[in-house]
C-alpha cells in the first residue's frame, strides 16, 4: 500500500512538471514580459524605461530559460522559468504582481474556503445519497416520477440563480442571515450556513439523478433479493446493502465533483464576500495578476492529483476485492 502511494506520487511529478510548462508557455510565450508590462502600465505611461523598471520590480527582467550573463549555476537559476515555474514545484509561490507574498495569502485564505467546501461536500454527499435512495425506495410511484422530473428541472437552472435567489430570499426578505461577510471562530457559522445550503441545493438535481442510476443498477441483483427474502426491511436493504455496493461508482463520481466544487467556491465566495481562495482567484482575474493565477493553477493541479490518490485509497476501504499494487 505504501509502495503504491509512493509510486503514485512519483507518477505525479511528470504531470506537475507538464502543468508548469503549460502555464509557463501560456503566460510567457503568447505574451512576452514586455507585453505584460505594457498592459499593466497602461498605454499612456509606456516608455522603454518604465517597462524595464516594471520588469525588474516584478522579477520578469531575466531571460526566459538561459541567462548567459550570470555566473556559474546562476546561468540556469536566474531565469524567469526557474524563478517563476521551477520554484512552484517546491511550493515557493513567490510574490504577486502587487508585491504580496502569495504563499502567506494562500495559508490565510485557506481556512474560510475549507469552512465552506468541507460542509458542502460532506453534508451534500449525505443528502444526495439519502434523496436518491428515497426515490429508489418509492420507485415506480408518482413520488419517484415527480422526484426525477424535479431533478431534471433543478439541474437545468444555473447555479447563479440559486445563489442570487437564495441571497435575496433568506438575507434580504426574511433577514435570517447576513447578506455577506465573514468572521473567525464560531461566529462564522451564520455567514457560512447560507452558502453551504445553496451549494448543496444547486447540486442536488444532477447528483441525485446520477446516484439514482447507480442504485437502480444494483437493485435487481441477487443479493438484494436474498436480503429481502430474509425479511429485512426495504430501508435496511437499501441503506445497508445497496448503498455499500454502489459506493464504487459513487466514489468515482466524487472525484469528478472536486473540480466543480472549486467552481462553486469561486461563485459562493465572491457572492457572499468570503475571503477564501476562490475570491482570491477572482480578484486576481479582475486585477490581471498573473502570479496569483499561476500559483492557483498549480495548486489546483496538486489538489486534483491528491484527490485521485485518495479516491484509490477509498476504493480499498469500501471494497475488499480492490488491491492496490
Amino acid at each position: 500500500m505504501i509502495r503504491y502511494i509512493i509510486r503514485r506520487l512519483l507518477y505525479a511529478i511528470p504531470i506537475l512538471v507538464g502543468v508548469n510548462v503549460l502555464t509557463f508557455a501560456l503566460f510567457f510565450f503568447v505574451n512576452t514580459p514586455n507585453d505584460m508590462a505594457r498592459f499593466h502600465l497602461g498605454i499612456k505611461r509606456v516608455t522603454p524605461q518604465a517597462i524595464t523598471e516594471w520588469k525588474i520590480e516584478h522579477g520578469y527582467n531575466d531571460p526566459l530559460f538561459y541567462n548567459a550573463r550570470a555566473p556559474g549555476i546562476d546561468k540556469l537559476t536566474r531565469t524567469i522559468f526557474f524563478q517563476h515555474s521551477v520554484k512552484l514545484l517546491v511550493f515557493d509561490f513567490g510574490q504577486s504582481d502587487s508585491g504580496r507574498d502569495i504563499g502567506y495569502d494562500i495559508r490565510q485564505r485557506m481556512w474560510p474556503s475549507l469552512a465552506i467546501q468541507v460542509p458542502t461536500f460532506v453534508v451534500g454527499l449525505a443528502v444526495y445519497i439519502s434523496v436518491a435512495l428515497m426515490t429508489v425506495f418509492f420507485r415506480g410511484t408518482y413520488l419517484d416520477l415527480g422526484g426525477v422530473i424535479l431533478a431534471v428541472v433543478m439541474m437545468s437552472i444555473s447555479m447563479l440563480f440559486y445563489v442570487i435567489g437564495g441571497q435575496y430570499l433568506f438575507s434580504k426578505v426574511l433577514r435570517l442571515v447576513p447578506i455577506s461577510g465573514y468572521d473567525t471562530g464560531l461566529s462564522a457559522f451564520k455567514f457560512v450556513v447560507l452558502p453551504v445550503v445553496l451549494g448543496i441545493v444547486s447540486g442536488i438535481g444532477a447528483s441525485m439523478r446520477l446516484y439514482r442510476t447507480f442504485f437502480l443498477e444494483e437493485a435487481p441483483r441477487d443479493y438484494v433479493r436474498t436480503a429481502r427474502a430474509k425479511g429485512l426491511s426495504e430501508i435496511r436493504v437499501l441503506f445497508r446493502h445497496v448503498l455499500k455496493n454502489a459506493m464504487i461508482p459513487i466514489l468515482t463520481g466524487v472525484v469528478v465533483v472536486i473540480p466543480t466544487l472549486f467552481i462553486g467556491g469561486l461563485i459562493m465566495e465572491s457572492f457572499f464576500g468570503i475571503p477564501g481562495l476562490g475570491a482570491y482567484t477572482i480578484d486576481a482575474v479582475r486585477s490581471q495578476d498573473f502570479g496569483i493565477v499561476h500559483a492557483m493553477v498549480y495548486l489546483g493541479a496538486v489538489l486534483y492529483i491528491v484527490g485521485l490518490i485518495m479516491t484509490d485509497l477509498a476504493y480499498t476501504l469500501v471494497d475488499p476485492r480492490v488491491r492496490l499494487e
Partner: peptide, 25 residues
C-alpha cells in the same frame, strides 16, 4: 492527465487572461 489535472475553470481563467493581454497589445 496533465490537462485534466488543472481544474477547468482555472485553465480557462489562465487562457482568457493571456488572450485579453494579447488582444490588448
Amino acid at each position: 492527465t496533465t490537462l485534466n489535472s488543472i481544474p477547468s475553470v482555472l485553465l480557462i481563467i489562465a487562457v482568457i487572461l493571456s488572450l485579453q493581454l494579447y488582444m490588448a497589445n
